[in-house]
């Protein structure tokens, strides 16, 4: 099963069995690559014994990234601790607050509540991927938020912005009710909901103008 264990093999090109095995867990210690970015010299070599078996390629913000991922590792953890993309926040880690919202193939989902291995071959967009990498130009949603002075503490902001991206892609002409509904998977404890809604409506407006 060595072949199947190396991710990158097409999911349909199985040999004996029609499934892909993430990795054989060999106990807590050896399977715990931890949430440190790779390369930290302080990690014992034993921690990475099975690392090669877990090396997968993720498409994040348009870039292919090779990363060592445990079978039970969530996308939010990979993004934050392996890829250094700390814009994706963990507010609850339980699919409740929305701070970890990312786009998977353009659809907003909770990064805390999917396994990284589940997004192999799919396109992941995080808050860091919204700016134009060459010009630094903000996305229309980000521009709208700048214009409307959105958010208070803004711990929720990356998640909300990702949901707004999904909203305007899906429904470029939302009513305030529709926008509120589309953003209802994100919590703002400052309860700055009205300003956030203004941002969303402005974002839709800007998107329509483009």
């Amino acid at each position: 099963m060595g072949q199947e264990e190396t991710v990158g093999v097409s999911e349909h090109s199985f040999t004996r069995r029609t499934f892909i095995k993430g990795v054989i867990a060999t106990g807590a210690t050896t399977s715990s690559a931890g949430y440190l970015f790779r390369g930290s010299s302080l990690l014992g070599a034993a921690t990475y014994q099975t690392a090669t078996e877990r090396l997968i390629t993720l498409t994040v913000n348009g870039q292919a990234r090779r990363v060592d991922v445990l079978p039970h590792e969530t996308l939010a953890m990979t993004l934050r601790y392996k890829l250094g993309l700390t814009g994706t926040k963990l507010g609850c880690d339980r699919a409740e607050c929305g701070a970890c919202t990312v786009l998977i193939d353009g659809v907003n989902q909770y990064g805390c509540s999917m396994l990284t291995h589940q997004v192999r071959g799919r396109s992941v967009t995080t808050i860091e991927g919204l700016e134009n990498p060459d010009t630094g130009e903000l996305s229309v949603v980000q521009k709208a938020v700048m214009e409307e002075g959105g958010f208070q503490c803004a711990f929720c902001a990356p998640g909300f912005i990702m949901s707004m991206e999904a909203l305007i892609a899906e429904n470029p002409n939302p009513t305030r009710e529709e926008a509120a509904h589309a953003l209802s998977g994100n919590l703002c404890r400052c309860a700055d909901y009205h300003k956030i809604l203004n941002c969303a409506m402005r974002a839709a407006e800007l998107a329509r103008a483009v």
Partner: peptide
């Protein structure tokens, strides 16, 4: 709490394979 214990992740591509694994 709040740390997923290790498991083996199996990703079947057909129903039959899934049932076999189960």
């Amino acid at each position: 709490r709040d740390m997923i214990p290790a498991f083996e992740l199996l990703q079947p591509t057909t129903i039959e394979a899934a049932i076999d694994l189960l």
